[in-house]
Write a protein that binds this DNA or RNA. Structure first.
Lengths: 275, 275
DNA sequence: GGGATAATGGAATAATTATTCCAAAACATA
DNA sequence: TATGTTTTGGAATAATTATTCCATTATCCC
């Protein structure tokens, strides 16, 4: 297996793009290939040259030429792309999950199945229960802040870190309060800033304190937490609740991260438009 | 193309039944085939005899015999069943994304819905594509390490942080390499330790370097990445791949976190039992 | 309409992949 | 431990499949 052609599409998406580019000016037979392939991309992984050629009603050699025009060295290279991306619809998700669990309680595969399931349930329940008004309010508050302070410790820290990362990528001035060196950076909270506080039961005291501090200084506070009775809720200008399904002692965080992402991206684009 | 054997399974379900019937009393090599095939049914349609045989760790001839025991005349006939029965392939997610962008539907709630959907798809595809052997191998490696070093920067950092958190909760000695102060802590890597390196395209150089460093010192390295061709893969003793569905520029991380959790909890309980 | 250029089909060949077969090894039984 | 039986690995072969090449046909441009 030698080097691939430098211009060969490396993903199904790239393939699709290239296909539309190329299709425009193509002689008759080759266009037949392009059309047929476009309509039957899902068969490439499991067909032979001859089968596809018959389907497109062209001789095999025409199809070979088509593969080369698409940037591949030949049919095999093109097929490899599709075989690697191939994921059939059956063993449907639930069957597969059962198989994993059959490996025996406590086996890594069974654990994975449980966490996958927990994540999925969390996402589903988030989709059903989201409070759109609260979300919109949160976005509005953060969109007009100078700097966004992100606080979340212990199990909430990964979410805070990701939120800070996405803010950064979207050019939103943000500061992650990570507790390094036990510095609380409370003096970084300045008028015009806003805070996102993330915490779940058992609520980390430092997070609650910082949220209160922000509130006392008159900064708007958005909280991302597990229920409205959370101790940070009383300092909140907007409350986003995410009921995460746990498996064992650990939360999947899927729903929480989805929420954080949506928040960050929405804030990011709101600010872009405001500029 | 001659008559098919009268006893060959005519549907995937029949195949599955026959497989369980037959697996019970089978000599060693053939049982390996049965197990591997059961766990990788979805790859039969797009693999060669040699590929599957390698995967099951048997010579090709053993796999041929297995096909015949299953009632087929040979591998080709068995493969035909899977090629014909496959359901239309992958969800065309990126097209939807493009549409969404074009319409400019940037309402926070709509964004959230997309991230929820991306997370759900990622989790499902993880369930379908997880390599159980790699997972078991990774758990075994980490279970017998003195200290587990966790490395993951940028977008992988949240996962690394959570992994370190869970290790800590499960009393697994773990060190999170977070890049604070640009210290790489390479001298913390000691004989008897192991490393988990987490990175996705575009791969962070520091992570790759640290993984190589660990490898050079003879530590076992487990990598959690997006594809087997990842630059860290060549330093890996176990490769866990997670194909995460992106929405826009940001990954949902759902599947990655589920994998990390399963890994950490499995390692934690394996060590408890060893004590 | 003539000359150059591009496209086409099919047959020849190369490469890959499936399949068979048999000697050697492992195993069971006495 | 000897003997028959089953299982195994690998090399040889058969079949399929991809790929190239070139003579023929169509198309374009002057």
């Amino acid at each position: 297996m030698q080097d691939e052609s430098p211009l060969a599409p490396a993903s199904i998406d790239a393939f699709r793009d290239r296909l539309t580019q190329v299709t425009a000016d193509l002689p008759r037979r080759l266009r037949q290939c392009a059309d047929y392939i476009a309509a039957n991309m899902d068969r490439i992984a499991v067909s032979t040259v001859a089968e596809l050629a018959t389907g497109a009603d062209v001789p095999p050699s025409a199809l070979m030429r088509f593969c080369q025009i698409m940037g591949f060295s030949g049919f095999s290279e093109m097929q490899r792309l599709f075989r690697e991306a191939y994921a059939p619809g059956w063993p449907d998700y639930s069957t597969r999950l059962r198989n994993l669990k059959d490996q025996g309680t406590g086996s890594p595969a069974a654990l994975l199945a449980e966490f996958v399931e927990a994540g999925r349930l969390s996402l589903e329940s988030l989709a059903k229960s989201v409070d759109e008004n609260a979300l919109n309010a949160a976005v509005a508050l953060l969109a007009r802040a100078d700097t966004v302070h992100v606080v979340g410790l212990r199990r909430a820290f990964p979410v805070a870190a990701y939120l800070a990362y996405v803010f950064d990528k979207m050019a939103v001035p943000a500061m992650l309060h990570d507790g390094v060196g036990n510095l609380d950076h409370r003096h970084a909270l300045r008028a015009g800033d806003a805070m996102v506080a993330i915490t779940f039961a058992p609520y980390s005291e430092e997070t609650v304190t910082l949220a209160q501090d922000a509130r006392d200084r008159g900064l708007p506070v958005v909280v991302l937490t597990d229920r409205v009775t959370s101790p940070v809720a009383r300092f909140a200008d907007a409350i986003l609740t995410v009921a995460e399904v746990d498996f064992g002692a650990f939360r999947s965080l899927s729903a929480t991260i989805a929420m954080a992402l949506a928040l960050a991206v929405a804030v990011g684009s709101a600010r872009e438009q405001a500029v």
